[in-house]
Design a binder for these strands. Structure first.
Lengths: 142, 142
DNA sequence: GTTGTTGCAAAACTTTTGCACATTG
DNA sequence: CAATGTGCAAAAGTTTTGCAACAAC
């Protein structure tokens, strides 16, 4: 931890914005786990340790971290969005278990490559992509 | 048009449910275009031709058609969900233009195959998947 | 001190639901 | 005519926003 904080600091300084304790705490929380977390998850974690950070601030800060590409937002087909830190971590996609909710990561250079080929064929310039497999994980598929 | 209506009729009969004019109209509308449409789009189309179908019924019916795999629901990163008919049409994935909103379809047997390989490696049983490329289409990427 | 940020509660949105009335089979 | 479906308005849920109080620099 440090590089991502520096990145945030630098960005804030440039925009004449401030590094508040809330922003620092949310960043720390996001990088403290490899799990995918929701806004509610964050609220709970803060609540549990006595630190109160409002929902509004969490949304605003996650939005900021998203712009800086420090975190990524995911829709796993539930009613809430999930987030995960990506800065400093290799790109990957996800498999979502429809039964237990477990999220498994995968990556395939071959798929990424084919994806680029397909896009190039129609002159589509990829900015980012989302590739999700929904089904049953090893433990849930009896 | 006909096969999908028969499929719906058959399902309804089995469940002692009824083929109402609303259900028939929504099905017709969904299969009348190749575009991806939102609930609001449907409402507008009905409104424009003087037929009023309530939002609640649209949601309820789309939900039904989804279960029957007549249509598919998509999240293209906007605030609303989009739908498209899939019955009788080959599977495909999507490229979404971040500027003009255009949706282009693509399919790649090679990607599908690799995807299966990746899943098999961790004993994940795929039920369905979502593969979207976000970026700029030919016309928007100057 | 200035100016940006937070927290709260209200607003905005999409989607769901309860219930009286209408419609189907 | 019995039972299911519709429409309305209210509810539910997530995310956004206006504004007074607060905190960072």
């Amino acid at each position: 931890m440090g590089k991502e904080l520096d990145l945030l600091k630098g960005h804030l300084r440039k925009g004449d914005q401030r590094l508040t304790s809330q922003r620092r705490q949310i960043l720390e929380e996001a990088f403290s786990t490899h799990d995918h977390f929701s806004v509610e998850d964050l609220e709970d974690r803060f609540r549990r340790r006595g630190k109160k950070v409002s929902k509004a601030t969490i949304y605003r800060t996650l939005s900021l971290l998203k712009e800086l590409h420090l975190i990524e937002e995911h829709d796993f087909g539930r009613n809430t969005k999930y987030y995960e830190h990506i800065y400093g971590h290799p790109h990957h996609d996800h498999m979502v278990c429809l039964k237990c909710g477990r999220i498994e990561e995968f990556r395939s250079d071959k798929i990424e490559h084919l994806q680029n080929t397909v896009a190039k064929k129609v002159s589509f310039k990829i900015v980012h992509h989302s590739h999700k497999l929904f089904g049953y994980c090893h433990d849930c598929d009896e």
